[in-house]
Amino acid sequence: MNPFRILGDLSHLASILVLIFNIKSTNTIEGISIKTQVLYVLVFLTRYLDLFSFRLVSFYNTIMKLFFISSSIYVVVLLQRSKTTQAVAYKTMLLTDTFKVQYILLGTLIAAFVINHKFTFVEIAWSFSVWLESVAILPQLFMLSKSGKSKSLTVHYIFALGLYRTLYIPNWIWRYHTEGVIDKIALAAGIIQTLVYSDFFYLYYKKVIKRSALNLP
């Protein structure tokens, strides 16, 4: 594995750990979009269908796939549980989490049927997963822009998550040069995903990085 791939995977892992740590330690779900989290469950369940073929690529690969599936479900369970434990916060979340996900689902489903490697269930599911992932953060970004203020941990979560797919782009270029392989669907969706994050990255740079630089003695 090349450094971009490792760093990408680590930042993906870090993003989820930051999110779970955030919910667990502060005991609040403020600022988190349940819609985005449900979309990620769908992304991982449709992406990792190859797990059922039991032709395992590597130990690392299998563990990571199982982690992404289980942790995404766990986050949704945590958010659902807050319905009773943090009734007010849960209601506030639903009121601000108003992005129309049906358009995302319909658009990515059409994209999967039109753009795929083979017209089979597994291939269409994989393609759907890749296109869906590229836009799954939109409800979360929409919520963030509506509320204006945000908890810094939520912001770090979004940053780490955006960084992961951005790092996959140099990884794909690296693999194209060293192994001669490239997946055009993943590359195109990866570029879209990075563009979706670009505005957020800019704000993150302006607010988080510049501010911390100013705080230096």
């Binding site: 791939r5 993906h12 690969n61 796939k65 992404f68 392989v181 997946d183």
Partner: peptide, 10 residues
């Protein structure tokens, strides 16, 4: 080959 790439990445 594209198939390999897809299952070996996350």
């Amino acid at each position: 080959l594209a198939h390999n790439l897809k299952h070996d990445e996350l």
